[in-house]
Design a protein around this nucleic acid. Sequence first.
DNA 1: TCTAAATGTCAAGTATATATTACTTTTATT
DNA 2: AATAAAAGTAATATATACTTGACATTTAGA
Lengths: 71, 71
Amino acid sequence: MARNIAIKVARAEKDMTQKALAEAVGVSRQTINAIEQGEYNPTIKLCRAICRVLGKSLDDLFWEEECEENF
Amino acid sequence: MARNIAIKVARAEKDMTQKALAEAVGVSRQTINAIEQGEYNPTIKLCRAICRVLGKSLDDLFWEEECEENF
DNA sequence: TCTAAATGTCAAGTATATATTACTTTTATT
DNA sequence: AATAAAAGTAATATATACTTGACATTTAGA
C-alpha cells in the first residue's frame, strides 16, 4: 500500500497528533501510524470515521490512482 | 452496517451481476453480496477496486451519514 | 543541551474480512 | 408451470486489520 500523506496533512491542518486522532476515532495510535505508513488497508468504517474527524471526504483522503503496486 | 443500495444501483447501470462484479474486482460473489447486505465492512482497497469497475467515486458508493447504528 | 512529546517500529494476541462449499429463495425466460 | 440464472444465506477455514505493550528515534520547547 502507498503511504497516506493526505491524512498527515489533514491532521496537521487540525493540529492533531496521531494519538489524538486515534482517540477521536476509537482505534490505537499504532493503527493510525500504520495507515499513514501504508502498512495496512483500513476498513471503510474506519476511513469514514477518520474523514468525519478531519473534515474531509473519502475521495480527499483515501482515493488512489492505480499503479503497478496494485497489481 | 447499513445496506449498500448505491452499489446495487451502480451495478444495474452497468448491467453487471454480483458474480461479474466479484470476478472483476477479484473477490468471491459472497463478499459482494455481504457488502450489499451491509453484513460487513470492506477494506478501502476493495472499495477502490469496486469504484474503478463501476466508474464511481468512493463518496458515491461508500459515504454514509452518521446515524445511531454507528455508535 | 535537556527533556518530553510525537512518531516509528516490533512481537504476540484477538477480532473480523474474505474464501470456499453448499444450499435455499427469488427473479426472469421459455 | 418449468427451468435456469441471480441473489441470499450459513458453516468452517484462513488471512489480515487492529490491539496491547514495549522500546527506539525524531521533533519541538525550555
